[in-house]
């Protein structure tokens, strides 16, 4: 079990609004992947986004650092309005960490070098500063001893933790997670989720696309359910799992949660 059912969500204070999406739409050709998305996220808030595959949840978070451009509507991140082709988008991106399903570590660099590359070349830190920070974060994700290894020498869970450390080394204000545990062998899921829970405890603003409902119950301030490009329902975890209002949400939860235990931790 990743997180126990009995544990109540971690209480914490929220700050001002840091992300706003208003009437955001996006198409892939004729496929309408995001429909009139309205979402606002406050500093320190932890949002879990779930929904069937193809519902647009990954696309939504990829719009926040403009890995994907949206076609209409407004997105504001940390006071900057994101428009397609925005000059200086890099300065927005470096404040937003992103963790991918397939880790995407740089295979030609060691774990430590993966963590120091961007701080040195993007932020302009000295090697000594960058390495000190990298070691601190590798410690925080519990693999300081793997610093000198190349990604290919690490397990999936270890790679994903290095990827988290790599993002944290940029000192981001927001962390995006795009199905961070779906490519992992089952026995490695927990080590990654544990790191994410610790990160949540530290007050990081997090948007997490995941089907780990135990994680959602324990950590999320709000669970957002998407289907066919729309936000169908959003609610605090207790309400979301306890009394989902929308029929599509109920059907989705019925499929992913163990039978007869709607509201329990997903297996």
């Amino acid at each position: 079990m990743t997180t126990s059912d009995e544990t109540a969500p971690i209480p914490h204070a929220l700050g001002d609004v840091v992300i706003t999406m208003r009437q955001v739409n996006k198409w892939y050709g004729s496929f309408h992947v995001l429909r009139d998305i309205d979402l606002s996220v406050r500093r320190g808030e932890r949002i879990v986004i779930c929904g069937p595959s193809g519902s647009g949840k990954s696309t939504l978070i990829r719009c926040l650092n403009q890995l994907e451009a949206h076609q209409s509507g407004d997105i504001t991140v940390d006071g900057v309005a994101l428009v397609p082709g925005l000059a200086g988008i890099e300065s927005v991106r470096r404040e937003i960490g992103m963790v991918f399903q397939r880790f995407n570590l740089f295979p030609h660099l060691t774990a430590l070098e993966n963590c120091t590359l961007a701080p040195m070349k993007v932020r302009g830190l000295s090697r000594a500063e960058a390495e000190a920070a990298a070691r601190t974060y590798l410690e925080r994700v519990h693999i300081p001893e793997q610093a000198g290894k190349y990604p290919v020498q690490l397990s999936g869970g270890q790679q994903q933790r290095v990827a988290i450390a790599r993002s944290l080394c940029m000192n981001p204000k927001i962390m995006l997670f795009d199905e961070p545990t779906s490519a992992l062998d089952p026995e490695m899921v927990n080590e990654v989720l544990d790191v994410m829970i610790e990160l949540a405890l530290s007050g990081m603003t997090m948007l997490v696309v995941t089907h780990e409902m135990g994680f959602a119950r324990r950590v999320a301030d709000r669970v957002v359910f998407m289907d066919q490009g729309e936000i169908v329902e959003q609610a605090p975890p207790a309400a979301f799992f306890g009394e989902p209002r929308n029929e599509r949400t109920q059907r989705f939860l019925g499929q992913i949660l163990p039978a007869g235990r709607s509201g329990a931790t997903a297996g």
Partner: peptide, 22 residues
């Protein structure tokens, strides 16, 4: 792989740095 571009992009690298370093 595309993921390499995306990881480098999300870390704030510009085109030339991304090309040269990653």
């Amino acid at each position: 792989p595309r993921g390499q571009w995306e990881a480098a992009t999300s870390l704030g690298f510009r085109y030339w740095a991304k090309m040269a370093l990653v």
